[in-house]
Design a protein around this nucleic acid. Structure first.
Length: 475
RNA sequence: GGCGGCAUCGCCAAGUGGGAAGGCAAAGGACUGCAAAUCCUUCAUCCUCGGUUCAAAUCCGAGUGCCGCCUCCA
């Protein structure tokens, strides 16, 4: 089955054919490190990381780049506010970003390039644009002359003339045209700056992504991704800068995720309606947040609410129970030796489930459908587990592997497979005491112990194969 | 003004011409000492009105409601 990706450039799902067979280069717009990230920021980070995981699962060699914007107006303002340097601010929030990314089980990119460490590359790019006549300098500022670039607007479907009419920005009168944008900004008093052929200054908003993406992935690369609010002007400008300079296609597949909303309004720092990952994670595990994000298709808008997180947690519990329950059976020492009809059936269902999962992911990363396949197989497994006959060890291991591969490796949820739950001596003792009481049919005592354990966060379940225990929401 | 998105069960959410997936919640039953877990059963004519078609949630037209980009934003 061929993978199809919705390409913002063509507004269609296209079959994905990488530039180099078997290899994929992906660039994702990362955070500006001036604050803690909110759940809306986290959406693309989770989604495109799943894209990377799935491509790897399909056997591609993936090179994944996610930048860290560590110099711009917001950085400067915030540093001033906190009375620290811009680089101190950056260091702090880069660290905080990785703490949040780790808690969400977001794997590190192959490279996390920082704008301030790529000033030389940025200046090279600017020189090229100046030589080719796309850039002009006015008193230490450098601008891109949009009207010189004939394909301007092809990503966002904007018409240059319409843009001029609709311009609501306060126009810098010195620019040749209102829609020209800054490539390099002259340093103001007290701002961090770098030497350049145009004097001391710093890179404009869009140029860092062009410079860094092309440095690490080449002049033309496969996938560039980010939130849909970046389509215009950020990505449009990136295309202009890059293609004007290289004279070749910059990005082959543009992917953009829908917004995360709070009360049906886009969550954004400027509106102030944000939920920080750092705060949510106190109450809900990373995998719950991941499940919530993946429960909707990445291009659809998604509304955030605590009720939904609760639902996500409940749904996830069903999948986690499968793992607990199968692992409990694997602790037995009696297994049947040969495969019978039931075993064959479950293997068949496993294969079918995996195929359907892959088919869903192949269809522009349809994670809601992919998730539903995990539930479909769960029912088959539970029926198998319910049968009174001896189980086949190989089958049980195959079930674990199914979830390990698809839920664990591809979606990044259900990551606790290998973790053995540890118990304090005290709790082990209580479980033993209860078993003893049950044998004596002292229900009052056994129930009391069970309640006590529940208060301590341990759930007991009596099964025909002995008592089974799990911790509530263990991390 | 230009460009774009969304509307499917109480909640979440797939489905783009021919069976309305899946999950959460709820109700009944089975199993259990009681529970829990699990299984079985129940639970939607898809915003409105027209049209095309043998056949439409799905295509076309009109309308209603909500949201976004064009300014920092994932």
């Amino acid at each position: 089955m061929a993978l199809k990706i919705y390409n913002t450039l063509s507004r269609k799902k296209e079959e994905f054919i990488p530039l180099k067979k078997g290899e994929v280069g992906i660039y994702v717009c990362g955070p500006t490190v001036y604050n803690f990230i909110h759940i809306g920021n986290a959406r693309p980070f989770i989604i495109f990381e799943v894209v990377r995981r799935f491509l790897k699962f399909k056997g591609y060699k993936v090179r994944y780049i996610q930048n860290l914007t560590d110099i711009d107006d917001k950085m400067i303002n915030k540093a001033r506010e906190l009375n620290i340097s811009v680089s101190e601010l950056a260091e702090k929030f880069i660290q905080e970003y990785f703490i949040d990314a780790d808690s969400l089980n977001i794997e590190r990119a192959d490279v996390h390039p920082r704008a301030t460490e790529h000033i030389a590359e940025i200046i090279e790019l600017l020189k090229g644009l100046e030589e080719k006549g796309y850039a002009y300098e006015i008193d230490g500022d450098v601008f891109f002359e949009v009207s010189k670039f004939k394909n301007y607007g092809k990503l966002s479907g904007q018409d240059i003339e319409e843009l001029k009419i609709g311009a609501r920005v306060e126009v810098d009168e010195r620019k040749r045209d209102a829609i020209d944008f800054a490539l390099w900004k002259k340093a103001k008093e007290g701002e961090p700056s770098w030497d350049s052929p145009w004097g001391k200054g710093r890179p404009g908003w869009h140029i860092e992504c062009s410079a860094m993406s092309m440095k690490y992935l080449g002049k033309t690369f496969d996938i560039h991704a980010g939130g849909s609010d970046l389509i215009f002007p950020h990505h449009e400008n990136e295309i202009a800068q890059s293609e004007a300079n290289t004279n070749q296609q910059y990005v082959r597949y543009w992917m953009h995720n829908g917004y995360l909303c709070l009360n049906n309004q886009k969550m954004s720092k400027s509106l102030g309606n944000i939920m920080k990952v750092r705060d949510i994670i106190r109450k809900y595990k990373g995998e719950v947040i991941r499940y919530f994000i993946l429960s909707a298709h990445y291009r659809s808008p998604l509304n955030f609410s605590e009720e939904q997180l609760q639902q996500a947690q409940n749904s996830l519990q069903r999948l986690n129970n499968i793992i607990y329950n199968v692992k409990h059976l694997l602790k037995q020492d009696k297994f049947k030796k040969f495969k019978d009809k039931d075993d064959e059936l479950i293997l068949e269902k496993r294969k079918e489930g995996e195929q359907q999962f892959i088919k869903a992911m192949d269809d522009d990363f349809n994670t809601p459908v992919a998730l539903s396949r995990l539930f479909g197989f769960a029912k088959d497994v539970n029926i198998y587990l319910n049968s009174p006959s001896l189980k086949n060890k190989i089958i049980l291991e195959e079930v674990i592997k199914f979830y390990q591969d698809l839920a664990g490796k591809v979606l990044g949820i259900l990551k606790d497979f290998d973790k053995e739950q540890s118990f304090e001596q005290e709790i082990k003792k209580l479980i033993e005491d209860r078993e003893k009481a049950r044998k004596e049919k002292n229900w009052e005592k056994s129930d009391k112990i069970r309640d006590e354990l529940k208060r301590k966060g341990v759930i007991l379940e009596d099964t025909t194969e002995g008592v089974r225990w799990k911790k509530i929401n263990s991390e």
